[in-house]
């Protein structure tokens, strides 16, 4: 990998390790290989959000042309958020695209992603289904996001009603994640979710 990229990543890695956010447990950064091209980030769900108490893992790939091109980052932990694909974990964030600047660092990027969890941008959605729910039924959205945080990110708050509905579909032989996606998509209406799951196989 290019000299500048490796040098920058090494320096940024040190910067993050020394930062107060790491000390406070808000973000973490781990190295996955010795070539400095793959890292794993970790952010804590911000307080007073449906993500509170959850830990979210991020895949970070550093391109050859870093820092002149942005790092490629996606959520590895499944998350229910308007700007993150519930399927691939792809993130819609301007600084990871056209607003990237070579002077930006991984620390700022991780903090920006964390800020995105506190303040979603439903008008620039990555996941249209989630964004629609966010706008039209904010209460249900918050509950769904909390349920996902509990199921995938180790969040504390279990939502009994939702768990029961997922279990109903599990009993019908549906895969757990598929069941959760269908229920979340259809505003937790068991009947519509079931219909969608079983019609698809026609």
């Amino acid at each position: 990998m290019a000299n500048i990229a490796a040098k920058r990543i090494k320096r940024e890695f040190k910067e993050v390790m020394k930062s107060e956010e790491v000390a406070g447990g808000a973000i973490k950064l781990e190295l996955l290989d010795n070539s400095w091209t793959e890292l794993q980030g970790e952010i804590a769900g911000p307080p007073d959000t449906p993500y509170e108490g959850g830990t979210f893992l991020l895949e970070i790939k550093v391109p050859e042309t870093y820092p002149f091109n942005p790092p490629k980052i996606r959520f590895m932990t499944k998350i229910w958020h308007p700007n993150v694909s519930s399927v691939t974990g792809a993130i819609c964030l301007d600084i990871l695209k056209d607003q990237w600047a070579a002077a930006l660092t991984l620390r700022t990027v991780l903090l920006s992603i964390q800020a995105l969890l506190s303040a979603a941008e439903p008008n620039d959605p990555q996941d249209a289904v989630v964004a629609k729910q966010y706008k039209e039924n904010p209460t249900l959205f918050a509950l769904t996001a909390r349920h996902w945080t509990h199921a995938y990110a180790g969040g504390p708050a279990a939502i009994r009603d939702f768990d029961a509905k997922v279990q109903r579909l599990l009993d019908m032989g549906v895969d757990e994640h598929q069941a959760r996606v269908a229920l979340s998509t259809y505003d937790w209406e068991l009947e519509r979710a079931t219909e969608q799951l079983f019609n698809r196989e026609e």
């Binding site: 042309t65 091109n69 600047a101 700022t108």
Partner: peptide, 17 residues
């Protein structure tokens, strides 16, 4: 170089955040 290779010309910006 990176910007030109990607086809950007008139709108290349400063590198600062």
């Amino acid at each position: 170089e990176v910007q030109i290779t990607q086809g950007v010309s008139n709108t290349i910006q400063c590198m600062a955040q």
